[in-house]
């Protein structure tokens, strides 16, 4: 039994998603290990983002079960919850392939919006907030402290008061991760976090993700095309093609799996036949 199946934070069981006649995900099962960095890879159109949208509640899966267990034992069936409750109660945070920041708000404001629910609770539905009671002031100070912590770790503390849309692309990606982390997630889902980053920024991202894994009770599930990121930091790789799982294992195993090489990394035209024979197509 692989290490990620012993005490998984998320068990995806027989997940199927159909859009009309199109089967985007077909009977997909895999485990996301607690404290692991799990990568979900596959060629374009393999259904990776659809899996993400099912986990975070933006799609309702046609069939299957998504069972999430917190480190304190609370269990949630994600397929039955609406999206905002998945983020609020099941503590699953996500980032988006096309960055979705609040562009007209400052970097700090973005991180404050992420802490909406605890702050809303402290403001007693705005009544304590309107009169600026100490209870709310303390909560706000704490929220700023938390935001500052993450800004320091994503290297954006100097840009805290700038509008988010003024940041360069790589910084926006980091801010989106910081914003997701401000919700205090158990599972962090990153949709192509390294897309459009230069090698130096990629390396910084690896460092950040390792830091999160080591210092917080947060497991990471990421979709990525950049193999340098995937192979370097992930503990566990799941490979999708046409909505089906074609490989599952540690990076070393997946890298040498001929099915993966054929489907994902691609082969030269001359080699197609040999590879097809090996795979048995």
């Amino acid at each position: 039994m692989a290490s990620w199946s012993e005490n998984p934070i998320l068990k995806v069981e027989h997940l199927t998603m159909r859009f009309g006649g199109l089967v985007a995900i077909d009977d997909l099962s895999f485990d996301v290990g607690r404290g692991d960095i799990t990568a979900l890879i596959g060629p374009n159109g393999a259904g990776k983002t659809t899996v993400f949208n099912c986990i975070t509640g933006f799609y309702k899966p046609t069939e299957g079960r998504l069972k999430l267990r917190h480190h304190d034992g609370d269990t949630f069936l994600l397929e039955r919850m609406p999206d905002f409750k998945i983020a609020r109660h099941a503590k699953v945070a996500r980032t988006f392939q096309n960055i979705r920041l609040f562009g007209g708000m400052t970097v700090l404001e973005n991180l404050m919006v992420a802490q909406h629910n605890p702050l809303m609770h402290a403001s007693a539905f705005s009544f304590a907030g309107i009169f600026s009671l100490p209870r709310f002031r303390n909560a706000e100070a704490k929220a700023v402290e938390r935001a500052t912590y993450w800004l320091e770790h994503v290297n954006l503390i100097d840009r805290a008061d700038d509008p988010a849309s003024d940041l360069p692309y790589g910084a926006q990606r980091r801010l989106e991760i910081a914003r997701a982390m401000c919700t205090g997630p158990e599972l962090l889902c990153l949709d192509e976090p390294a897309a459009g980053l230069n090698p130096r920024e990629s390396a910084e991202l690896n460092k950040l993700l390792r830091y999160i894994g080591a210092n917080h009770e947060t497991s990471i599930l990421l979709i990525e095309h950049d193999m340098s990121v995937v192979m370097e930091i992930s503990d566990h790789v799941v490979v999708l093609d046409y909505g089906e799982k074609i490989s599952d294992g540690n990076p070393e195993k997946v890298k040498n799996d001929p099915a993966v090489i054929a489907a994902y990394l691609g082969v030269d035209d001359e080699e197609v036949e040999t590879v097809e024979q090996e795979v048995g197509v």
Partner: peptide, 21 residues
């Protein structure tokens, strides 16, 4: 207050709002 920030965040991006709970 958080409610006002949530209004403005809603104006900026509703999907991101939902992803933040």
């Amino acid at each position: 207050l958080p409610i006002g920030r949530a209004w403005e965040a809603l104006r900026e991006d509703e999907i991101a709002c939902r992803s933040l709970g």
